[in-house]
Design a protein around this nucleic acid. Structure first.
Lengths: 248, 248
DNA sequence: GGCCCTATGTATTGTGTCGTACATAACTCC
DNA sequence: GGAGTTATGTACGACACAATACATAGGGCC
């Protein structure tokens, strides 16, 4: 984990106009977000919103049986805790750090105060929320219609977009929990991708070698989410939203 | 279809404070929403929002292959066209009338104007949007983990809550399209429910006989969505939100 | 009443994933 | 370096659902 992150590494914070940044940034707290940290549980009244810079947070639902399924992921393009400004103050899902790193947190009432100014922050976080809904929708579609092989490709691509390098620190067991499938299913799918030369992995680490091929092997779900996120959050440019602040 | 619906049959419109109703209601247009009508296609810039009174609108995604999957349903508890105030102006899904009836529509700019007053309407539609997200999330979970039998129960219950009586005018083929499964799978699941005395059906019509039993047979997904919707939209009361305006 | 269209019923075969069990290999820690 | 722990590999039977094919029956329409 590189230290001393900047708030502007988070793409939402980066995009705020200077006067909003002046109001908000003094209250941001730099905070480590290690793998496995739970930002909130179902029903928890939220006290903070989190702006990831180089980590990934999964929103997932855990069933009565203990089985789980990932609903969406949040990285540097977004924020965790939308229910604070949506009005619900809690959700029925859990927010779990899936890839460790850093982020900034902001007291809930500070965010709500700025939201209530009805300015650029409000517009931005609402558009982000719509992008998140697209991701949730497509997760539902993907769970219904696509094979584990395809879903693993989608998942790797979503993760890759949110990370500064082309490797993930991640066990197959953890991926299986996210996708809501058996670990053995992930082993088999990952084995195929390795045979094809698309990824290379060792214990707890996956490196993506051939990203274009990975996109070909993925179902359409990744592209739908990516395109819609670019459209909603980066309307002025056809450029890749995630790449726009990627460190060299 | 009964005619001459009142705007207040839609629970969101009903819940608005009188002064907001006075501003908004004059611009509402009563509109028939027959089975199969498409309110918008993916990417369509929305011109109206729709407030169903006694019909059900499905938000669904249609894949390149032509296969489809329902993301969520909207009835008298909600509105169709949230992307107007979320800022995206379009979505990647299709809105299709799944059970015919009536509703009211409002020009998009009228809704946005009222939303921008930052009053009760904004708070209400944002909370509704969060409820919709819960439904989308749970659809993803349900698609991953639950059997067709369980999903059919969930789907029947979601529909029933939004309809004025205990029967649905609906072919098994249509249900299969919504759930994203084969029609034969629905036939089998419906046959089991009929054998159990939970429902009765003939060509294109399903009557729910034993709703409590249906809730028992359903997966937890229905209850999660129901409880969260009640919490978000009916915070002052522990009463059933959907039943609160149900005609006798 | 009889015809036709469409909704529903049923059967067969194939495939993907699950549940389970166990083997092997990599990394850690002493 | 060796032991223990954890991640990954592999195999086998069971099952749910898909794909396909075709039969039957309900209800509208002439």
């Amino acid at each position: 984990m590189p230290n001393a992150p900047q708030p502007t590494q988070n793409l939402l914070l980066d995009k705020l106009p200077p006067e909003v940044q002046e109001r908000v940034f003094p209250y941001l707290e730099e905070i480590p977000l290690p793998l496995g940290k739970v930002l909130y549980e179902p029903g928890d009244k939220m006290r903070y919103v989190y702006f990831p810079t180089d980590c990934i947070v999964s929103l997932l639902y855990v069933m009565e049986s203990g089985a789980s399924a990932e609903i969406s992921v949040v990285g540097k393009e977004g924020l965790v805790g939308i229910s604070l400004f949506m009005g619900g103050e809690s959700t029925s899902s859990r927010a779990l750090v899936q890839s460790g790193g850093w982020g900034f947190r902001l007291a809930g009432h500070r965010l709500v105060d700025e939201f209530n100014r009805h300015g650029e922050l409000m517009a931005l976080v609402l558009r982000y929320t719509q992008a998140l809904m697209t991701q949730m929708s497509q997760t539902a579609v993907c769970n219904r219609h696509h094979s584990i092989d395809q879903q693993l490709c989608r998942w790797l691509l979503l993760s890759l977009d949110r990370l500064p390098s082309n490797h993930l620190v991640m066990t197959q067991e953890l991926i299986a929990n996210m996708l809501g499938v058996r670990r053995e299913g992930v082993t088999e799918a990952a084995g195929k991708l390795q045979d094809l030369g698309v990824i290379e992995y060792r214990r707890g680490r996956i490196e993506v070698i051939d990203r274009p091929r990975l996109e070909e092997l993925s179902c359409e779900c990744y592209a739908v989410v990516k395109k819609e996120t670019d459209r909603l959050l980066n309307p002025d440019s056809s450029e890749d939203w995630f790449a726009s602040k990627k460190p060299a």
